[in-house]
C-alpha cells in the first residue's frame, strides 16, 4: 500500500522519477586494476564480478589493499590501469571516469570504516542528505518551495522506510553523535540505501561490534541483499562472520585476488 501511494505522489512531482528506479543493474565488472603508492605496487591485477543480490567478501591482511580497492571503486582514487564498469538498464557506466560525488546516484555507494555520520544532524536528516532531491538546487528551493516540500514528504517516507529496514526507525530523531557504534553503522547503511545505489561497498561494517550485534547485522545484510537485489561488497577481517551470507570470497594477496566461490554457502558456515 505504502509503495503504491509513493508511486502516485511521485508521478505528480514527476521530477522525482529517479527516486523510484528499481534495482535495475545487471552486473558489476572490475578488471585488471593496478595501482601503486610511491613505488610499492598495492594492486597488481585485480578483478571481480558481482551480480544483483550477491554478496562478495573482500578479505586480506592489513595493508593488502582492500580499502584501496574500495577507494578506487567509489571514485576517491584513480588507478593506473584497469577497468571497472557497472552495467545497468543496457547502459555501461565507466566507474573510473566518474567523480566520487557522482557515483552514488549512478549506482555505487560506500560505507566508511569510521562511519562518518553527519554529527550535527538527526538520524533521519542523515539519511535524507543522501536523497537525490530537486530542492538541492537553491533556485528551486526559493522559487518552488511547495514543490520541494511535496517531494520532501516522499523522501522522508522513503528514509523512514530504510531506517525501519535497518531496525533504526525508533531512533530516527536521535542526533548523529548520540548513537552507539552499532546504531550509527545501521543509520549509515540506511543512508547508503537512500542514495538508490545498487552496489554497496561496505568497509569493515563489523569492526567494533560485539558477537551478538555482528551476527544480527550480518543476518540483516544477507536479507537486504536477497530482498532488494542490492549487491554487497564487504571488506572484513573477520571473514567467518561474513561467509554464511557470501557468494564469493575475494582474498587479496600481494596485490592479486584469489577468488573462491562459496556456492553452498550455508554448508561452508
Amino acid at each position: 500500500m505504502v509503495v503504491n501511494n509513493d508511486a502516485n505522489l511521485l508521478t505528480k512531482t514527476q521530477t522525482a522519477k529517479s527516486v523510484i528506479k528499481k534495482s535495475g543493474f545487471s552486473k558489476l565488472v572490475v578488471e585488471n586494476i593496478a595501482l601503486s603508492f610511491g613505488g610499492k605496487q598495492v594492486l597488481k591485477n585485480v578483478g571481480l564480478e558481482l551480480l544483483p543480490g550477491q554478496v562478495g567478501l573482500l578479505t586480506g591482511e592489513n595493508g593488502s589493499g582492500k580499502t584501496t580497492l574500495l577507494n578506487v571503486l567509489s571514485g576517491f582514487l584513480k588507478p593506473e590501469a584497469g577497468q571497472a564498469h557497472l552495467i545497468k538498464e543496457g547502459k555501461t557506466i565507466d566507474i573510473l571516469k566518474e567523480e566520487s560525488d557522482g557515483l552514488p546516484l549512478l549506482g555505487i555507494a560506500r560505507l566508511w570504516q569510521d562511519i562518518r555520520l553527519f554529527h550535527t544532524m538527526t538520524a533521519l536528516e542523515n539519511v535524507l542528505t543522501a536523497a537525490p532531491s530537486i530542492g538541492i538546487n537553491p533556485f528551486r528551493a526559493i522559487f518552488q518551495p511547495i514543490k520541494v516540500r511535496q517531494q520532501e514528504k516522499i523522501l522522508i517516507k522513503k528514509a523512514l522506510n530504510w531506517l525501519d529496514i535497518m531496525g533504526m526507525k525508533e531512533r530516527s530523531g536521535s542526533s548523529g553523535d548520540k548513537l552507539s557504534l552499532g546504531q550509527a553503522k545501521r543509520v549509515a547503511i540506511a543512508r547508503l540505501l537512500q542514495t538508490g545505489a545498487e552496489v554497496l561497498l561496505l568497509d569493515e561494517p563489523l569492526a567494533g561490534l560485539d558477537q551478538a550485534a555482528s551476527l544480527q547485522l550480518v543476518n540483516d545484510l544477507g536479507i537486504l541483499a536477497q530482498e532488494t537485489g542490492k549487491a554487497l561488497l564487504i571488506v572484513e577481517h573477520n571473514q567467518h562472520s561474513i561467509i554464511p551470507i557470501a557468494d564469493y570470497k575475494y582474498e587479496l594477496v600481494n596485490g592479486v585476488i584469489n577468488t573462491t566461490e562459496l556456492r553452498n554457502r550455508d554448508d561452508v558456515a
Binding site: 567509489s74 560525488d101 552514488p104 566508511w112 562518518r116 550535527t120 543522501a130 538541492i136 543512508r191 537512500q194
Partner: peptide, 13 residues
Amino acid sequence: RDDELAAKSVGIP
C-alpha cells in the same frame, strides 16, 4: 560542513 568526504560519498555535489 560536518564532513566533506561523507557528503561526497552520498552523492552531494
